[in-house]
């Protein structure tokens, strides 16, 4: 291909995309971006997510995304979470029996004192930000998964800066993280049935994954405790999800920190290698 052909082809592609973008923004394709009015579905959620005058259809949490994720389509989120934790269970099963070498290699003392000091300062801040994202998720953008993923950065940074042996010594072990993760999952499961259990004990009926009172299911969790908004089950879901996600990510990071030789040794099995 000659040079001028390339220039013509490239320029015509750029001109085509630019003209298409122009036509699109001017609304010549039949709709405007962004639309001049919110769509009907958006209006439903905007008016319903926090609406004390219409409690039967409201999630009573001002953060619409969290309300949708953990209330309106809560069961969907439960299965999403289940997929994520199945993946983690699979990786744990794959690496069964793989452990770090007993004796740390000489390079396992981590990075220099300067980096370690700065990291000590920032790990606390990372955890604080993660907590604010997760525990405030029913009021401001954020939520359990985002907060948990942020919290998992702290052990990851510690793993790089201090070495994985430091993490193991300070109590962040695979089994403990498995325990924390299971506690989080148990919490999510219990929260899903919380209103149902309460209704059954008081002789009423309720839905699975119910948050606020619904028609024919009059019991719901309090959306306001002493003037502070809780979002009912949303706060509990966020707390447990953050716990489970941060522990789950930490397990994966710990497994990835095991040297490849050790993992292959276990996978290969005996000397003849079957």
């Amino acid at each position: 291909m000659k040079a001028w052909e390339r220039i013509v082809i490239g320029a015509s592609m750029v001109i085509f995309v630019a003209l298409l973008a122009l036509v699109y923004t001017l609304g010549a394709l039949g709709y405007r971006v962004p639309p001049s009015t919110p769509r009907d579905l958006a209006m439903v959620y905007l008016t319903m997510t926090f609406n004390p005058s219409n409690p039967l259809f409201s999630a009573m949490a001002p953060e619409a995304v969290t309300a949708i994720v953990w209330d309106y389509r809560g069961l969907d989120t439960l299965f999403e979470t289940a997929v994520f934790f199945l993946a983690i269970i699979a990786s744990v099963a794959l690496m069964r029996g793989v452990s770090l070498p007993e004796k740390p290699p000489s390079s396992a003392e981590g990075m220099s004192l300067i980096v370690k000091t700065v990291t000590k300062l920032t790990i606390g801040m990372i955890l604080a930000v993660a907590a604010s994202i997760a525990f405030h998720g029913h009021l401001t953008p954020g939520g359990g998964f985002q907060g948990g993923a942020t919290a998992a950065v702290a052990p990851l940074v510690a793993l790089v800066v201090f070495s994985v042996y430091f993490l193991e010594r300070s109590g962040v072990t695979k089994n403990r993280m498995l325990g924390l993760r299971s506690a989080g999952l148990l919490g999510i499961g219990l929260t899903a049935f919380l209103v149902l259990i309460g209704s059954l004990l008081s002789g009423g009926t309720a839905f699975v994954f119910q948050n606020q009172p619904k028609p024919a299911a009059p019991i719901g969790l309090p959306w306001r405790i002493d003037g502070a908004l809780t979002g009912g089950t949303l706060f509990l879901f966020n707390v447990f999800e953050a716990l489970a996600v941060s522990a789950g990510f930490t397990i994966v990071f710990l497994l990835l920190a095991v040297p490849e030789e050790e993992a292959i040794k276990v996978v290969r099995g005996g000397e003849d290698g079957h």
Partner: peptide
């Protein structure tokens, strides 16, 4: 954060 993290990063 920039003040403490950027020098640590460039040092590393």
């Amino acid at each position: 954060l920039v003040l403490i993290l950027a020098p640590a990063g460039s040092h590393a």
